[in-house]
């Protein structure tokens, strides 16, 4: 499931507020998380927003949760293509404060795109999505073939 590897922003480590919260281990983990392919992609990669994705499974459904604070429903796009769920969208900058003095701007602005390779087949026509408290929850019902089955043991 390494498709889902979360990219960590390096600029946060530079901010003094965050400095003491990072341990050397986190730094090393991050170093090894980055493949060489990512380095080549350059600055575009560095400016991207990678919201956190969680994947849950129960008997009936697969559930994908994405942390997307402060978006408008019309700015979220969800698509399902050959067992891959893609969620993309945009968080717009706040024009209201364009002329105000900015002391801190840590929150992400711009586009994001995340994809999840689903571990089981799902009923594409019955997928539901809900956006509550800044968390997008996509519920994907499994196909009958993918659901667990109880097997009866017969005594011979």
């Amino acid at each position: 499931m390494n498709v889902l590897k979360r990219w960590h922003r390096p600029e946060l480590t530079a901010a003094p507020t965050f400095g003491r919260l990072f341990s050397l281990r986190d730094e090393l983990d991050r170093l090894f998380d980055t493949s060489f392919g990512d380095w080549n992609r350059g600055s575009q990669q560095l400016s991207q927003w990678n919201p956190a994705v969680d994947l849950f499974e129960d008997k009936e459904n697969l559930t994908v949760k994405v942390e997307l604070p402060g978006l408008k429903v019309e700015d979220i796009n969800i698509s399902l293509n050959e067992g891959t769920l893609s969620i993309s969208g945009e968080r717009k900058s706040e024009e209201k404060f364009a002329n105000a003095e900015t002391y801190r701007a840590e929150r992400f602005v711009g586009h994001f795109q995340r994809s999840v390779v689903l571990p089981t087949p799902v009923k594409a026509d019955q997928v539901k999505a809900q956006y509550t408290d800044g968390v997008l929850t996509v519920t994907l019902p499994k196909t009958e073939a993918a659901k667990p089955k109880q097997i009866q043991v017969n005594v011979a």
Binding site: E67, E94, F97, E101, T102, R104, A105, D133, G134
Partner: peptide, 23 residues
């Protein structure tokens, strides 16, 4: 630690914090 934006306007300050999953 949530990410925040802080702005100053002539009337005061505005703080915005990302707290996904918090009602």
């Amino acid at each position: 630690t949530p990410e925040v934006n802080i702005y100053e306007t002539k009337d005061g300050y505005v703080l915005k914090a990302d707290l996904p999953g918090v009602s």
